[in-house]
Every structure is written in structure tokens, then in C-alpha cells.
């Protein structure tokens, strides 16, 4: 079993670098500096299991990006990162099961890693 593929979308380059640097040993990390590159990655990599997206980005916010991404791949676990308090959009996405959870910035990488681990375990249990 190879490393699980994770996509992280954020308009802040440093966040992308740090996320990748901190988690690349455990996972195969794809990064995208904007939602369009993100959608391209999803289209090209059907084996992406987890997508983590920043909420506030230019052109399209995290939820809008995830709604588009779901059309390409529905088997993915989606997460939102936000520097704000929980908004109505996020609450709605949580209620509808579009995203599994949301994380507050500054985020704790260990916490996110634990959550991804659980998701993958769930996923493989379902496969079996």
C-alpha cells in the first residue's frame, strides 16, 4: 500500500510549503495555490482520498471549490480551514455532510494528521 494522496489548496504559499514539509513523510501531498489548479489535480488524480481547502481565497471560496470538486470526485473526504469563526456557509456544508469537519487557523498539523488517519481507516474498512 503506497502513501495516501492528499490535496491541499490555499492561496498562501507559505502555508502550502509548511503543510507539505510537515506531512510529506506520511502522505503524498499535492498542493494548489488556487482552486482551479486544485480542480485540475482532482481531475488528473482519481486516487486523491482527502482534500483540505482554505476558506477565504480569491475568486472562489473553499466551499464553492469543494462543491465543484465533488462533481469530479465524490469519494473524497473534504475539510475546510478558516481564519474566521464558523460561518453560515461552513455550518451549512457541515449539516449537509459536504465537509467532514472544519479546522481553525492557526491549525495544529498533528490534529489534522490524526483526523486524516481516522478518515483513511474508515475508508479502508468500508473497502473491505
Amino acid at each position: 500500500m503506497g502513501k495516501v494522496k492528499i490535496l491541499y489548496v490555499d492561496d498562501e504559499a507559505i502555508n502550502l510549503m509548511l503543510f507539505q514539509a510537515n506531512l510529506e513523510k506520511k502522505y503524498d501531498i499535492l498542493i494548489a495555490e488556487n482552486p482551479f489548479t486544485g480542480l485540475q489535480h482532482i481531475a488528473e488524480n482519481k486516487d486523491i482520498k482527502v482534500v483540505v481547502s482554505d476558506m477565504k481565497m480569491p475568486v472562489m471560496n473553499g466551499i464553492e471549490f469543494i462543491l465543484k470538486a465533488r462533481l469530479l470526485s465524490s469519494e473524497v473526504a473534504y475539510y475546510i480551514l478558516t481564519g474566521f469563526e464558523i460561518t453560515e456557509d461552513i455550518q451549512e456544508a457541515l449539516n449537509q455532510g459536504i465537509i467532514r469537519r472544519y479546522f481553525r487557523k492557526p491549525f495544529n498539523i498533528q490534529e489534522i494528521s490524526r483526523e486524516i488517519e481516522n478518515t483513511i481507516t474508515d475508508y479502508y474498512e468500508q473497502q473491505e
Partner: peptide, 24 residues
């Protein structure tokens, strides 16, 4: 404050990420 908090939370995120990297 919402604006400030978003702008401050990102650099805080850098520090947090950097710290995690350093700890590892």
C-alpha cells in the same frame, strides 16, 4: 476585528507550521 483576525491568523499559521516542522 474579523479582518485583523484573518490577517493575523495566517502568519500565526506560518509560525505554527514552522514550529511543528522544527519540533519534528
Amino acid at each position: 476585528t474579523a479582518g485583523i483576525s484573518h490577517e493575523i491568523n495566517n502568519p500565526l499559521n506560518f509560525i505554527m507550521g514552522g514550529l511543528t516542522g522544527l519540533q519534528n
